[in-house]
Simulated assay, not measured.
Amino acid sequence: MAGELNASLLNEHKEKHFTAGEIVRDVIIGVSDGLTVPFALAAGLSGANATSAVIVTAGVAEIAAGAISMGLGGYLAAKSESDHYMRELKREQEEIIAVPDTEAAEVAEILSEYGIQPHEYSPVVNALRKNPQAWLDFMMKFELGLEKPDPKRAMQSAMTIAIAYILGGIVPLFPYMLISNADKAVLASVIVTLIALLIFGYGKGHFTGSKPFWSALQTTFIGAIASAAAFAMAKLVQG
């Protein structure tokens, strides 16, 4: 009866939590670098008096290399996380079999940290000892703080970061594709990219829980500094 009541209450109450944090993180990584790096490269080449055609060619090459590199980095990071989880899972399985009393004491200690009294957590400890899989899941989550990773996570992360990088990188190069005069194209690129950085920064702040306007200004400032530094360096080297 109590179980049916709880199920009914849960069905009636739907919490609206944001659960796509990993995807958003990958998009942020890809777009932020995609906007900033090709933007700085294009500005630097403009400072060196390169033509629009040369800037587009170099920019496309950089976007391709950057997307592959960033995607591979995302894949390796997610794969390492998955491998770490599996190693810890195997170790925890062995400990539950080899030293069950010690592991049960650890369960009791974890529950006591939440203010649960011995007479309250003893039935929980005993119930977990009768269910090895639930016991293992409990230890992984509450002792080690590890969530089981999605087996598709590594490839999804790689693809998300790479695509986001490409989409971000196209923005600063687009004016050079339309305007043959590099001096005019660089001004258009600056305007378009700064607007894109403002929008992206605002969206990043919204999804990550920080102040959207501050995030927009901060993201735009970083992109502007990177491009200005690249442009100035190119002018300095050129003499």
Results as ranks from 00 to 15, higher is better:
G3T: 11
L5N: 06
L10E: 14
H13E: 10
E15A: 14
E15C: 03
E15L: 10
E15G: 04
H17Y: 11
F18A: 09
I23M: 12
V24N: 00
V31Q: 06
T36V: 07
L41F: 08
A42T: 02
S46P: 08
N49I: 04
N49T: 11
A50R: 14
A61F: 13
E62G: 10
I63E: 09
I68D: 02
M70V: 03
G71C: 02
Y75V: 00
L76I: 15
L76K: 13
L76T: 11
E88C: 00
E94Y: 02
I97F: 06
P100F: 05
A104M: 10
E106C: 01
V107Y: 05
I110H: 12
L111H: 01
P118W: 08
H119F: 13
H119V: 02
V124F: 15
R129C: 03
N131D: 15
P132W: 11
Q133S: 14
A134F: 14
M140L: 15
P149L: 07
S157L: 00
A162G: 00
I163F: 05
G169V: 02
I170T: 06
I170D: 07
V171A: 06
L173D: 09
L173T: 03
F174Y: 15
V186L: 11
A188P: 04
V190M: 14
I191C: 04
F207V: 01
G209W: 03
S215Q: 05
S215I: 00
F221V: 05
G223C: 09
A229C: 14
M233K: 12
A234F: 10
G239P: 01
G239R: 09
